[in-house]
Design a protein around this nucleic acid. Structure first.
Lengths: 143, 143
DNA sequence: ATAGATGCAAATGTTTTGCAGGAAA
DNA sequence: TTTCCTGCAAAACATTTGCATCTAT
C-alpha cells in the first residue's frame, strides 16, 4: 500500500489528539491521495462506494475536515461553488480550463513577491492567497 | 435619484431584450449600487426589506442575474461559499480581511502581464482570473 | 390582450447535526 | 467500559423552479 508517509502522519495526528484509527479514515485518505487532489466530496464518495459501499457521505465530510486539520489536505472553492479538496502544499496557483475542467498548478516567485508589496501598501498582513486563471487549455482553445 | 448612467443602461438593456421595466428592478439596482458592491443576496434583501417589504428573495436572485447579463454586476465567490455581487469593472483583485470582513480592491499591471506569460507556457488562453489575498487588515493585525 | 414578472411554496444540491448503535482504545 | 465513530435521517443553508397571479407593454 502506497502513501506510507501520509498514513503515518495521520496515525501520529490521531494518536496525539486521542482520536481513533478506523478503517474508514484509512480508506478515505488513500482514495483522496490516489486522486491527486482537486476532488469533490461527491467524487470521493463515488470512488469509495465501489470497494466500500458502507462508507457514507457524512463520514467523508467529517474525515476530510479532519485531514485538513491534520495538515494533509486543504479546502478549495473554485468558481462553481462546490468545495474541492487538494493535497496540502504551499505557494501554488491554478489554471482552470472552463471547457474540460482540467486544473493545472503553477508557481511564480515573482507574483508572490509582488503580492507582499501590494499588501504592505495597504497595511495588510497576508496569511494565504488564491490566484486562479480561468480560460481554455491548449486542447480546448479554438483560435 | 443618483446612478443615472446605470439606470439608463438597465433601461436600454430591458428595451433591447423586450423585457419589462418594473419598480422592483429599479429598487434592486439602486440598493445594489448604493452598497458599492461585494454584497450578498441576503444582505441586499435585508436592506431592501425596510423600504419595500414586498420584494422577495427570489426576485433579488433573478434581478441580480439579470444585472450580470446586462453587464452592470458580476458574481464573485470568496472562500466562505456565499455568492457576492460586485459592480462590474475589469482587472482588479482583492485583499480580504478574515477578521473584520473588509474587502479592498487593488490592481497590478505587473501581475497581469506575468499571468499571461505563465498561461502561454501551458498553452492556455486566459479569459478571466481571480486573485485574492487573505489576511488581517491594518486595523485587525496584532503584530 | 399578451408576454413577461412577481412572490410564495416547494424542490434542489451541498454540507452539517442529532442520535442510537457500533468499534477502537 | 469508556470514549470516540459511524451512518442514517433530518436539519440547515443558499439558490432555483413551478405555478397562479399580477403588471407593463
Amino acid at each position: 500500500m502506497a502513501h506510507e508517509v501520509e498514513r503515518e502522519a495521520l496515525a501520529r495526528y490521531l494518536e496525539d489528539h486521542h482520536l481513533k484509527h478506523t478503517k474508514q479514515r484509512d480508506v478515505i485518505l488513500d482514495v483522496f491521495l490516489k486522486a491527486e487532489g482537486h476532488i469533490t466530496s461527491d467524487q470521493l464518495h463515488q470512488k469509495i462506494r465501489s470497494e466500500h459501499p458502507g462508507i457514507g457521505h457524512t463520514t467523508i465530510y467529517r474525515t476530510m475536515k479532519l485531514l485538513c486539520e491534520a495538515g494533509l489536505a486543504t479546502e478549495r472553492h473554485f468558481d462553481d461553488g462546490v468545495t474541492r479538496y487538494e493535497i496540502e502544499h504551499e505557494h501554488h496557483d491554478h489554471l482552470v480550463c472552463t471547457r474540460c475542467g482540467k486544473i493545472i498548478e503553477f508557481e511564480c516567485q515573482m507574483i508572490e513577491a509582488t503580492q507582499e508589496k501590494i499588501a504592505a501598501r495597504y497595511g495588510f498582513r497576508v496569511l494565504r492567497h488564491r490566484h486562479e486563471l480561468y480560460g481554455h487549455c491548449k486542447d480546448c482553445r479554438e483560435d
